[in-house]
């Protein structure tokens, strides 16, 4: 018996394709958690990162947040919040957002900071307003790095949402956690495969977003 036979068995069992514990339902849940947490984290991290990056102020605070975020254990935080606040979507969203904000914030800050100062100087010299400099000069050039920050956050959320099944959240992690309890190894491996595929799909989505949104002038410039 190897992993592939488990995977095959899991996906060919038609019971796994229907109902509240079916693959479409679990996948949908997982994607929903991910999108919700990512949207909340981006709503916090992007404006803060753009602003600090543009003004150049707050670099120390950002560095501190980055170090602190690295030290925080995600799984620990998840369990801690659930055991103190109880089950439910909101308590689970808190750690997901807390963990997703720093990569977005830090990379956005870094991305804007690392934009070549010459075009910014030129833009200012030709009388561009500061907001316009940020959105029309700095943002397009910083976009690839900002997208990579969002991608990191998204992958992190996909991962952590998997673990969240341990504290009774739905999503693909259910198969792994339930399978471990029920000693149903087929289910465990099937769930793991689905999570890995979702993570890869996330990379693909961000790659496609980069192709669509990043100017060819910037894309070719970097390579």
């Amino acid at each position: 018996m190897n992993v592939l036979t488990f995977v095959d068995a899991f996906f060919s069992d038609s019971a796994h394709w229907h109902g509240y514990d079916g693959i479409p339902q679990r996948l949908l849940e997982h994607v929903q958690y991910t999108l919700l947490a990512l949207a909340l984290a981006a709503a916090i991290g992007l404006p803060a990162g753009l602003l600090t990056g543009h003004t150049g102020r707050g670099g120390n605070a950002i560095a501190f947040i980055a170090t602190a975020a690295r030290a925080l254990p995600s799984f620990g935080l998840l369990v801690l919040i659930v055991v103190t606040l109880g089950f439910g979507l909101l308590p689970v969203m808190i750690p997901l957002v807390v963990l997703a904000v720093p990569p977005i914030l830090v990379t956005t800050y870094e991305a804007v900071r690392s934009v070549d100062p010459a075009p910014v100087d030129a833009a200012r010299g030709m009388g561009m307003h500061e907001s316009r400099i940020l959105f029309q000069v700095e943002l397009p050039v910083a976009l690839p790095l900002i997208l990579s920050g969002l991608r990191s956050a998204a992958i992190q959320i996909v991962s952590t949402a998997t673990i969240a099944a341990y504290v009774s959240l739905g999503g693909l992690g259910r198969y792994i956690v339930d399978g471990l309890y029920q000693r149903d190894y087929e289910k465990v491996v099937g769930g793991a495969t689905l999570v890995a595929l979702l993570a890869l799909a996330t990379i693909a989505v961000f790659w496609a977003a980069g192709r669509l949104a990043v100017s060819p002038g910037v894309r070719r410039h970097r390579t």
Binding site: D116, A118, V120, A122, S215
Partner: peptide
């Protein structure tokens, strides 16, 4: 107004400072 002033003056710098994302 500072932006109006700057728009009335062309500004050329070393290395041109072109916007790499624009044609």
């Amino acid at each position: 107004p500072v932006t109006a002033l700057r728009r009335s003056m062309g500004y050329v710098i070393q290395n041109a400072g072109l916007f790499q994302h624009r044609t």
